[in-house]
Every structure is written in structure tokens, then in C-alpha cells.
């Protein structure tokens, strides 16, 4: 398994305008993840998802997009079994997550990697120990093998030299890359990214974006990217789902999204302040709200 990592091409200093060339041979096309009519709410009154249907083929990199608070992160939580769907089915490699036993859920999580919004690095450990953590917890590798393995993972994200640093000594972009190395430490089949671009400067942002694409192809992983960064996503992903009001409102590959005339997609891609997604939070008409008018 570890030998696969060295197939990752070195970071090119001048990426092509369209980001990285997409691999043509990734996966056999069978769906790795299937959500059908999934509904979820923390309380009955406030439904976050109401009937989401989407599928992710094996080996693909798929983005799930939508405004803040539309339930994107909830989809990831459902996929790692932290929450159970209120209705509908969540299937991973053909198995329904809700029906998994404790042990099955455990082994499902071992084959899954998740990159948290702000990295969620363990602040009391060095970068090296952070990446070594999942390996130490789940394998009995001898120390020298582990050492080499961790350095290879760190090398893949270009941070081999930062192994001895503490997370507090890293910049936001570096921390995100370390978290990425930790996420792929056990060569997961499925990787979930929760807002991997949040709070990054443009350079770090495109570095992380390209790493996600390269790792996906080199390790043959299936990836789901939850983000609201449309420009970066268009550069790297294979397919995009748009979610609003707890439903999938549009989906398509990069070209069809770019050309789409759907008002929601257009608003999102062009970043227009008002459109199907309203600028104003639902409220009474302004005239009524002013105290003078009602008198």
C-alpha cells in the first residue's frame, strides 16, 4: 500500500490555466456513494435536508456546493455515520449506513478519511505525530517503517521539512496540508473534505486544491468536496451538485455548469448578490417594519 504514494507527481511550479489535467482512467464508474431521498433535521421543526438524491462514482472527485448553512456539512456527517438520516437511504459501496452494526461502522470509518473545516490537528502533538496518529492507532508497524511512511505522506503534501513543528507554528495553509496528510495516512478509499479552502490565501488555496485532485487520482480514491468556493472547484472537480433549501437544485459536469442558464447556478458562479438566493432574510416589507409607517 505505501508504495502507491510515490506515484504522485511532483508539484508543478506553473499549473496549467485549467488546473490539473484530469485523469481519464479513474475508477470503473460504479457508484461508491448513493444518497436517495435523504431527509435530516436535528429537530422536527427545522429540516436541514429534505430529499437529497445524489451519487458519486468510484474514483471521482465530486463537489457539493451551496450557500452557508444549507446542509452540506450535514451530508458529510451522514456519510461518516455521525448522524442517522431521518428518512431515505445513505449507501456506501452498496451498504446502507443506517443498517451497519457497530463493528461495520467502525471498519467503514477506517476506510474513510475526513478533512475537517479547520484541519482539526491535535494541538498537543507535533506534525509528525499528527500524521502518525491514525497509523499508530490502527496498525502495529515497527517504528522505522512508520517513520518512513509518515515522511512519505508529509512529502506528498510538501511538508516533510515541517515534521518537527507544532500545529501552532504552522500557517493556515500548511495546517490544512498537514491535515490532508493525516487524512490520507491510512490510504482511505473515500475522502470527505469539509470546506478545505475556508480561510486560505489564494496561493495556499490553489496548492490545496491541486493536492486534492492529485491525491484523488494517484491513490485511486473517491472524494467528496463540500465547499462554497466555486472558482477553485471548477478547476479541479469532475462533477458538481448544487444544494439549496435542503434539496439538490442543479448538477452537472464542469462544462455544463459553466454554460448553465439556471438562474441559481448563474448567481452562484458569477457571485451575484441577489437572485434566487435572496439578499434579505425573510421579513415584513420595509414600510411595515418602520415604526413611523405603522402609526
Amino acid at each position: 500500500m505505501p508504495t502507491r504514494i510515490d506515484k504522485i507527481p511532483a508539484m508543478s511550479s506553473s499549473p496549467t490555466p485549467d488546473g490539473v489535467a484530469r485523469s481519464e482512467n479513474a475508477g470503473d464508474g460504479s457508484p461508491m456513494i448513493e444518497l436517495s431521498e435523504v431527509a435530516f433535521g436535528y429537530t422536527k421543526a427545522r429540516q436541514i435536508l429534505s430529499g437529497v438524491t445524489l451519487s458519486v462514482p468510484k474514483g471521482k472527485l465530486v463537489a457539493v456546493m451551496g450557500g452557508s448553512g444549507c446542509g452540506k456539512t450535514t451530508i458529510l456527517r451522514l456519510l461518516c455515520g455521525q448522524h442517522a438520516a431521518t428518512s431515505g437511504r445513505v449507501k456506501v459501496s452498496g451498504k446502507n449506513i443506517d443498517e451497519m452494526s457497530r463493528d461495520e461502522l467502525f471498519s467503514h470509518r477506517r476506510r474513510l478519511g475526513m478533512l475537517f473545516q479547520f484541519g482539526a490537528l491535535f494541538t498537543d502533538m507535533t506534525v509528525f505525530e499528527n500524521v502518525a496518529f491514525p497509523i499508530r492507532e490502527h496498525t502495529d508497524l515497527p517504528e522505522p517503517v512508520l517513520h518512513d511512511l509518515v515522511l512519505m505522506k508529509l512529502n506528498a503534501v510538501g511538508l516533510r521539512g515541517a515534521a518537527h513543528l507544532k500545529p501552532s507554528e504552522l500557517s493556515g495553509g500548511m495546517a490544512r496540508r498537514v491535515a490532508l496528510a493525516r487524512t490520507i495516512a491510512l490510504d482511505p478509499e473515500l475522502v470527505l473534505y469539509d470546506e478545505p479552502f475556508a480561510g486560505l490565501d489564494p496561493i495556499s488555496l490553489s496548492i490545496v486544491g491541486q493536492l486534492i485532485r492529485k491525491l484523488n487520482d494517484a491513490l485511486g480514491m473517491t472524494s467528496i468536496l463540500v465547499t462554497h468556493d466555486i472558482m477553485e472547484s471548477l478547476k479541479i472537480v469532475d462533477y458538481i451538485y448544487f444544494i439549496a433549501d435542503g434539496k439538490v437544485v442543479a448538477h452537472g459536469d464542469v462544462e455544463s455548469i459553466r454554460r448553465s442558464t439556471d438562474p441559481f447556478v448563474k448567481q452562484f458562479v458569477n457571485g451575484e448578490p441577489d437572485g434566487p438566493v435572496r439578499f434579505h432574510y425573510p421579513a415584513k416589507p420595509l414600510a411595515e417594519a418602520f415604526s413611523g409607517a405603522s402609526a
Binding site: Q82, P134, H138
Partner: peptide
């Protein structure tokens, strides 16, 4: 404070997703 901060920064959730029980660890 330490455990609360680990929860706030999603370190506990990260462990759970790595199939490591944060209560044990």
C-alpha cells in the same frame, strides 16, 4: 479547558471519524 478546546476545534470529532474512541484516547 483542554478537552473543551479539543471539542471546539473538532479534534474529538476527527478522532471519531478515524475510528478512534475519544473517550478511551
Amino acid at each position: 479547558a483542554e478537552i473543551g478546546l479539543m471539542k471546539t476545534t473538532e479534534q474529538l470529532a476527527a478522532m471519531e471519524v478515524m475510528a478512534v474512541n475519544p473517550i478511551a484516547r
